[in-house]
Amino acid sequence: MYLGIELVLALSAAPVRTVFGFEIEPQFNEPYLSTSLQDFWGRRWNLTVTRTLRPTVYNPVRYVVSSYVGNSCATSIATLATFIVSGLMHEVIYYYLARAPPTWEVTWFFVLHGVCVSFEVVVKKIILRRGWRLHRAVSGLFTVAFLAVTGNWLFFPQLLRNGVDRKGIEEYEVIMDFVKDKLRAITFV
């Protein structure tokens, strides 16, 4: 999925760069090198969404809740709220792509990841104070494995059941044929 999205974004960025003369900010920052879920979601995956949800959901929720429950709990609540909003946004996207009623698997994927990121932040604070740290290779392997298992369990099934993968490939082929025709027309002019 990552490679497909990266390819589509690169193909979209090329005309923007050519026509308007400016660079589009990268959407990803080598997510396969993530060493934790916090690193994956906060610094490496879908950076536009991260830059959007942090000031619109995370920061306001954290600010409002911190006066009631303290900073530590407020961080966890704000993290979970952000992941819930992301899950609901993905449900809308899935509905648009599949035209099938929501199954809520995607929202549960994001709730699970929100809980795990919150737990990870708390555990890291305790463990780092004691001077203990996992090697990057080990933590990276755990992170990628967790993403793969939970993605195959909760994120992708709804798309596959409704044939969105097949439809996407068919649409991609149409777009590529269009691009090839345009490139041939430019070459012969």
Score class of each variant (00 low, 15 high):
91 E>F: 10
111 V>N: 13
103 T>S: 15
131 G>Q: 06
59 N>A: 11
121 V>W: 12
62 R>Y: 07
95 Y>G: 15
124 K>I: 00
113 H>M: 08
138 V>N: 11
120 E>K: 03
64 V>Y: 12
63 Y>K: 12
132 W>R: 14
78 A>L: 09
97 L>C: 11
109 F>Q: 00
79 T>C: 15
68 Y>W: 10
115 V>G: 03
120 E>T: 01
78 A>K: 13
87 G>H: 09
64 V>D: 08
140 G>D: 04
104 W>K: 05
101 P>G: 09
99 R>D: 07
109 F>A: 01
142 F>D: 05
145 A>E: 02
87 G>D: 04
109 F>V: 00
110 F>H: 02
96 Y>Q: 05
129 R>C: 05
126 I>R: 15
89 M>E: 03
110 F>K: 00
67 S>I: 00
123 V>R: 14
89 M>D: 03
59 N>F: 07
110 F>R: 02
120 E>Y: 04
119 F>Q: 11
130 R>I: 00
127 I>T: 08
110 F>Y: 13
66 S>Y: 08
101 P>E: 07
117 V>P: 04
74 A>S: 14
74 A>D: 06
139 S>K: 09
68 Y>E: 03
135 H>S: 08
95 Y>N: 07
72 S>M: 04
126 I>K: 15
133 R>C: 10
120 E>G: 02
98 A>Y: 07
83 F>Q: 01
104 W>I: 01
120 E>L: 03
58 Y>L: 09
63 Y>P: 04
130 R>E: 05
128 L>Y: 13
118 S>A: 15
67 S>Q: 11
60 P>E: 05
136 R>T: 00
60 P>K: 06
79 T>V: 02
130 R>N: 10
102 P>G: 12
121 V>R: 15
81 A>Q: 06
116 C>N: 04
63 Y>H: 13
77 I>L: 14
67 S>F: 10
116 C>Y: 10
98 A>I: 00
72 S>G: 12
117 V>C: 01
109 F>W: 07
121 V>N: 13
68 Y>V: 00
102 P>D: 02
69 V>K: 10
130 R>V: 00
85 V>N: 05
66 S>G: 08
88 L>W: 02
73 C>E: 04
64 V>S: 09
76 S>W: 03
105 E>Q: 12
112 L>V: 02
91 E>G: 06
105 E>T: 01
122 V>Q: 15
95 Y>S: 09
95 Y>H: 13
93 I>V: 11
